[in-house]
């Protein structure tokens, strides 16, 4: 137990160093930007003395190291600067946009697990059969589709041709602003309010982008599940269980799958982190007002505070998820 705790402490100790590195990277990106942050605030017609004053206020006349020190202080107190575009503090913007991304990514990972895990187990139990080959090919294909092409294709088929899915956005016009925002997750908010038509509408709007986003993680999860299961099914205790005459279902799900669960949870967390990346592209196409859309819109408007703030937050979430995966792995696996 003590060795486990020590290993965990070592991992946790490396986190501040990584976070420090994150801050260095975003700070440096912010400094090499060709856009003059002063002009972005005062406008390019401002008189010289106004420009000078803004430069002094921003501390841009000080050495880089001093500026970095201030930057660190600001981050630690939760101040990511003000967005030029929305005129709000970036932290406030991110807090507003993040729930939509969280909802989208969570729905996607749930779909990916529900489909990907059984698919991987199925392929592993029928190794080298046509089912296995089909699953392998499907996984490789799922890994190769650009998510934005898939999103366009899905809009074309399910929205325009079949009329199964609603259009882009998080909810229909009829339901907009009908429910108080509590968690920012529309499906949860509408359910809490007991407004079932609105709930159905929110779920309906969520299904398509989540399905598109899920495919990549689904392919990865199915692939990893298959690999883990194959390794496990080769173990001797499985042969013993077979010799004892246990039913195949029981062997696969109770014995083998039980042992696969631990590495699989780690994979899940890593995939979840990867969903943030896919969300940037998916949100752009489905007009989903999340962090990804905030990031790209800020990028195109050269709103550097917002871009770097969002990047930093995504990096933070990424590190946190990795740490959590590591932690769970150590807690759940008695051998580690």
């Amino acid at each position: 137990m003590t060795s486990r705790l020590r290993a965990l402490a070592a991992t946790a100790a490396s986190v501040p160093i990584t976070l420090f590195g994150l801050a260095v990277v975003t700070f440096l990106i912010g400094r090499v930007v060709p856009i003059d942050p002063v002009l972005a605030i005062v406008g390019d017609r401002a008189p010289q003395d106004v420009v000078e004053r803004a430069r002094l206020e921003l501390g841009l006349d000080q050495p880089l190291l001093v500026q970095f020190w201030h930057y660190l202080g600001q981050i630690l107190s939760g101040d990511l600067g003000r967005s030029v575009m929305t005129a709000n503090p970036v932290t406030q913007d991110i807090a507003r946009y993040f729930p939509a991304t969280f909802e989208l990514a969570t729905a996607a990972i749930i779909l990916a697990v529900l489909i990907g895990v059984p698919l991987g187990v199925l392929a592993a139990t029928r190794q080298d059969s046509w089912i296995d080959q089909a699953v392998r090919l499907f996984c490789l294909a799922g890994h190769s589709v650009p998510v934005f092409v898939l999103a366009l294709l899905s809009l074309m088929v399910f929205y325009a041709t079949l009329h199964w899915a609603p259009g882009p956005g998080r909810q229909g016009i009829l339901f907009e602003d009908m429910v108080d925002i509590r968690t920012g997750l529309l499906t949860v908010d509408t359910a809490l309010a007991g407004d079932w038509p609105a709930f159905r509408d929110a779920l309906w709007h969520l299904a398509q982008p989540a399905g598109v986003l899920a495919l990549f993680s689904l392919a990865y999860i199915a692939r990893m599940t298959r690999a883990f299961m194959l390794a496990e099914l080769r173990q001797e205790y499985i042969t013993t269980a077979r010799a004892k005459g246990l039913s195949p279902l029981r062997i696969v799900w109770r014995h083998a799958f039980g042992n696969v669960l631990v590495p699989l949870v780690t994979v899940l967390f890593l995939t979840y982190a990867g969903l943030l990346e896919g969300a940037v592209l998916t949100e752009t196409i489905f007009a989903w007002p999340g962090l990804g859309q905030y990031l790209t819109v800020s990028l195109l408007n050269a709103d550097m505070n917002a871009v770097l703030g969002a990047t930093l937050v995504v990096g933070l979430i990424y590190v946190a998820l990795n740490l959590l995966a590591d932690f769970l792995y150590r807690v759940m696996d008695p051998r580690v």
Binding site: L22, L276, E277, L281, V307, L308, T311, G315
Partner: peptide, 12 residues
């Protein structure tokens, strides 16, 4: 510690 696309976005 950054997703690849997002870091690339920030660099660009």
């Amino acid at each position: 510690a950054f997703p690849r696309l997002i870091l690339a976005l920030a660099f660009v």
